[in-house]
Structure formats: C-alpha cells, structure tokens
Nucleic acid binder design. Structure first.
Lengths: 145, 145
DNA sequence: CGTGCAAAGTTGGATTTCACAACCCACTCG
DNA sequence: CGAGTGGGTTGTGAAATCCAACTTTGCACG
C-alpha cells in the first residue's frame, strides 16, 4: 500500500482504483460492456494494460471473472458489490466533468425513476441534509507516516 | 491530446484530476493544508511531481496560487469553486475505501451539523430518491472515437 | 481441406512518467 | 556570520505505459 503520507481511506481506495484506466474500465462495465475486446475499444486502453488492470481489479474484489462459454473458453467481467458501490462515485465524477471540464452539452445523460434527468447530490446519510463546508467538521484525521 | 475511446465527462474529469497524487493533493487542501511543504509531507508525493501537479491543477482552474507574503515571496494554494466541488467526490471515495479497502476503523471521521457521524449518500438532486441500478436509465451515451 | 474470423489475451521494444536525492535562491533569525 | 525555512528545479535511474504484432482455441464457410 501507500508507503508514506497520511493514513487515509482515500489513499487506500486510490491504491485499488486510482491507476490509469481503472475507472474507465469500471464505467464500461457499469454501462453493461463486460467483454475484453469491447472494454478495450470503448476505453481506448491498450490491451496489455487492460489485461493488467482487470487482473488487479479482480484480485481486489471489485470485479469477478466469469466464464460464459466453455468451447472455446470465453470470459466476462461482472461487478461485485464493491464494484457496484462505485457507481455513485462515477456519477459524481461525471457531473463534475460536465460542469467544469467538458465543453458543450453533457455527452452522457441518465434519467432517474422519478422522471427527471438525473443529477447526483451528495447528502448526509443520517439526516439527508446538504454537505457544505460549514456543515462539516473533522472529528479525527489519520496520522502522517 | 489523444482522444480515443468514448466521449465522456468521466474521462474528461480524469484528464484533470486522475493523475497520480492529484486527488491526495486536493484532500490536503480541503483539509486546510495549503502550503507546498505541508502538502508534500502529508501526501508523500515527491517535490518535483508535486510542483507539476500543482501547476496543472492551477492551469485547469481547480486551484488558485496566491502570494501570502511579499518578502520573501511565499505562496499558498486555495481551492476555486471547481476545487470545492470535488469535496463530495472525495467523501464518497473515502467512504468506499473505509468500507471495502481499509482494515479496521476509519482513519478519518467527520461530523455533520445534524450531530451524527458523517457518511455520504448520493441521491437524485431532483427528487431526493436513492440511486440503485434499477432506478437509473441511460438516455444518451457518448460515441466511441 | 484450407482460409478466414473472433475472443482473449502475450510478447518485445520504444517512449513517457515517476521516484529519490541533491541542489538552488531569497530571505529571516539568533 | 551561519543555520534554517519555504518553494521550488535538476539529474539520474527505475518503473509504467503505449503500440503493433503475435498466439491460442475454436467455429464457419466454400
């Protein structure tokens, strides 16, 4: 894991999903593309790097490699619970990119079951209240090693 | 920049904040550490890489470099609106790391103004409803280049 | 039978990025 | 005057990434 710096779950999370291409692989898988060639084409990652990323994501328990055909052996990558739990992070990242990076209209649009075009909001899970800096207070912070 | 793969705001966002150390730099800045040496110490990034990251984050409009002393010239890095908008993403990433990567108790703990220990939830900004896979539907998706 | 195609990777070599330590400069403090 | 501090830059070697080509297992045609 991270040798130096602050002990922190953000750093730990990035050790798993912070390498180049990892989150784009997850994006494709959560969009429903579960095969090696399709993920390679849709992300633009080179095939050797993609193979390495898929291996580490499987080892980390974010994806599961499943054989969907016996002859010839063919595999697909499906998200585990940990992988599905990344969906909110990807949606927030997409929203931030739409707002502050992408020029023009949003390339990808979702609709929520309420009928509205979907935009994510992050709230307090306990009270449902919004998350501004004034409302947040650090109780404890990891030590720096 | 080589724009292969799907046209997507997640990819665009990662082009800005997806390089190694970028999000840990943002973490420190949002925790209140705004000086070069402090950020270097608390993240563990080497000083040359840190200088490069701070430059690209300033160029991208995520941070602002401000002189806080004239003689000798000393600088601090403060988040712009775009930088502050990354706070929800970091909190979600921390939550995911706490749950699926970090062993033992959470290294960093926040309290919300409602009094409860803070945990983030991502909801639909329009209706406040939760975000499960069944409730989400893709309306449009960026093309693959 | 031989050719072509597809999926899921490996392999080899060039290029780019990263890590680490050392160094620099302008100033302040004792 | 010498040491210390903040904010970096430079040089060198190690590691990661990119790219194209190749491999393997099987099926489908003509």
């Amino acid at each position: 894991m991270t040798a130096r710096g602050r002990v922190c779950s953000i750093a730990n999370a990035l050790a798993v999903i912070g390498e180049r291409w990892s989150l784009l692989v997850l994006r494709e898988i959560l969009l429903g593309e579960r095969r090696f060639d399709g993920i390679a084409r849709n992300t633009g990652a080179s095939r050797d790097i993609l193979a390495a990323r898929l291996r580490t994501l499987v080892e980390a328990g974010v994806l599961e490699k499943r054989r969907y055909e016996e002859h010839p052996p063919r595999y697909e990558y499906v998200p585990t619970e940990a992988g599905r739990a990344l969906h909110p992070i990807l949606l927030n990242l997409m929203e931030w990119g739409d707002r502050y990076v992408t020029d023009g209209p949003a390339p990808t649009v979702w609709r929520h079951s309420c009928g509205a075009e979907f935009h994510p909001a992050t709230v307090c899970a306990h009270c449902g209240g919004s998350v501004t800096e004034e409302q947040m207070q650090v109780v404890r912070v990891g030590p720096v090693r």
